[in-house]
Write a protein that binds this DNA or RNA. Structure first.
Length: 528
RNA sequence: CGGGGAGUGGCGCAGUCUGGUAGCGCAUCUGCUUUGGGAGCAGAGGGUCGCAGGUUCGAAUCCUGUCUCCCCGACCA
């Protein structure tokens, strides 16, 4: 039995034969256009006609459903219960917390009327008679409305901790939108928890952060750096914000998940109090944490290549697609029978503690034409089965992460059906692992650690560098006005501070911004 | 929100300056041939030119407004 399907891909540049890639734009030529091409060609999503809002198509939504399922399992394992809160939040809820409303005021959609009326010219306008007494906000996030519920639900120390989550859509009226990365409406989960004290709330904040880190790496095959954000990057109303940061193939950072310790900010605003064991009324300490459809944008920019998406097997809606080479003749029936039997054998297998997801693509049309659609969608394994395969008990296998032979042809490998059935689960595991290793190696190679001056930063991020990565450096953690100055300096170079990696690497030297001794390390990068 | 670009069959585009029969490629459909790796030939169908007003005998084309998308910037916990 072969150990794996086909030799590994060579790097694109060293191909000896020209390759006819499936996408009209290559990454190295125009990364932004390439990103949009993947979304269109892989049929992940499309424009909706509504500003900043997208239609998520079956393959894209299928990936989201996979993310939802696997994340939901982890949330429930942590003892968090799902709830659902209203889409509309009364305006007055926001005015209770100044920092929070300050952060979101400019990007909120407001409902002011509850009825339409004819304008006399064949159109419709909001009925002036139907104006709402108090405007309703379409939720940009749900701290305020869930805080109000928590205030009702929590009376005693016995009610704590209160651990809730909701899967929902939220709306933020962003100035500039990008599919999946920043849409006006997006889908997410938001966890909201209340605790007796800071220690318990911080422990929950860090538990969620670690849940996101391991999810990104184990499920999305997307290496991330987890850590606290600097104070200028905090969520409005948060005492401490943590993030996971992933590196895209163009070297930019993407914040792929956040976890906030909110202190008593929202407890004070909403009156979330409990009677402690001594009989005292005490404010709760709350947290919130979320990941969104933005993660799909990250998957695209981490795993996509010049032939489309490479969907990590754990989140692929279909892991194996079987393409019968139909001839519109009498042989088709036997071929389909062979393929159906193969499908059943593969679907009975398990990988990653779930059944293998296999599709027999019986749609009319040539297998060779349908193949490229599945390549662009990033199905991990594609099987093309012809009449001779069926007669000889063979299969022809294409691994999405090893797509091309050196002669520029698709890297199909023929083998006995039984051999493939025996190795299919292992191949899916290997692809998942290979995608992660490739992304991690690329990221690690693009983090620079020997820059110790602002001039050095300037040189590293010079205009002629196509895809500069990240810089990790020690700094003195300035605050307030001193921090503002650093942020200004970085902004001139289009740079942002991502987070402080949570690892045990010691820090030394002096801060390039203040000249004072460095006290911690930060990641500096361009970001989405 | 500022600057720039763009909206014409499902997709990609030409036509707009200089108003006068709505075109091309891909895709689709039909037929024939071919086919173990992204087929060839022939024929056919499909568009109130983003939307709303205006000018005109006549508007894809000119004018006004508006919506949406792309790029750069600002903004974005």
């Amino acid at each position: 039995m072969p150990e794996s399907v086909g030799p590994p891909n060579r790097p694109c540049m060293s191909q000896t034969a020209p390759i006819k890639h499936a996408l009209p734009v290559l990454r190295q030529d125009d990364f932004a256009q390439w990103y949009q091409a993947v979304i269109a060609e892989a049929e992940l999503a499309e424009e909706s006609g509504v500003r900043g809002c997208m239609v998520i198509k079956p393959w894209g939504y299928g990936i989201w459903e996979r993310i939802q399922k696997l994340m939901d399992e982890r949330i429930k394992e942590a003892g968090v219960d799902n709830c659902y809160f209203p889409l509309f939040i009364p305006l007055s809820y926001f005015t209770r917390e100044a920092a929070h409303v300050e952060g979101f005021a400019k990007e909120m959609a407001v409902v002011t009327h509850h009825r339409l009326i004819g304008d006399g010219k064949g159109g419709l306008i909001p009925d002036p008679e139907a104006k709402l007494e108090e405007p309703l906000i379409v939720r940009p996030t749900s701290e305020t409305v869930i805080g109000a519920a928590m205030a009702r639900w929590i009376q005693s120390w016995r009610d704590l901790p209160l651990l809730t989550n909701q899967w929902a859509n939220v709306v933020r009226w962003e100035m500039r939108t990008r599919m999946f990365l920043r849409t006006s409406e997006f889908l997410w989960q938001e966890g909201h928890t209340a605790h007796a004290d800071e220690a318990d709330a911080m422990a929950e904040t860090l538990r969620a952060l670690e849940m996101y880190r391991s999810f990104a790496e184990d499920v999305l095959a997307m290496p991330v750096v987890a850590g606290p954000k600097p104070e200028n990057e905090r969520f409005p109303g948060a005492v401490e914000t943590f993030s996971i940061e992933a590196m895209m193939q163009d070297g930019k950072a993407l914040q792929a998940g956040t976890s906030h310790y909110l202190g008593t900010t929202f407890s004070e605003a909403a009156g979330i109090r409990y009677q402690d064991k001594e009989g005292q009324q005490t404010l709760c300490h709350t947290t919130s944490w979320g990941v969104s459809t933005r993660m799909i944008g990250g998957v695209i920019m981490v795993h996509g290549d010049d032939d489309g998406l490479r969907t990590p097997p754990r989140i692929a809606p279909q892991q194996i697609v079987i393409l019968p080479m139909l001839r519109d003749n009498d042989g088709d029936a036997a071929l389909l029978e062979y393929c159906a039997a193969l499908r059943a054998k593969l679907a009975a297998l398990s990988v990653f503690d779930e059944k293998v997801r296999v599709l027999l693509d019986k749609r009319p049309g040539k297998a060779t034409a349908k193949r490229w659609g599945w390549v662009k969608k990033g199905v991990p394994l594609i099987l093309e089965i012809g009449g001779r395969d069926a007669e000889g008990g063979q299969v022809s296998v294409l691994r999405r992460d090893r797509l091309w032979r050196e002669d520029g042809k698709a890297n199909f490998v023929g083998m006995a059906q039984d051999d493939f059935v025996g190795m299919a689960a292992g191949e899916l595991e290997a692809i998942q692992q290979a995608l992660f290793e490739e992304a991690r190696a690329r990221r690690d190679a693009q983090i620079v650690r020997d820059i110790d001056s602002v001039a050095g930063l300037e040189a590293y991020f010079a205009e002629d560098k196509q895809f500069p990565g990240w810089v990790e450096l020690g700094w003195s953690r300035p605050t307030a006005a001193a921090l503002d100055k650093v942020v200004e300096q970085l902004k001139a170079l289009k740079l942002t501070i991502r987070n402080t990696p949570m690892d045990d690497v010691p820090v030394s030297g002096t801060c390039p911004f203040t000249g004072e001794p460095a006290v911690e390390r930060i990641l500096v990068a361009r970001a989405y």
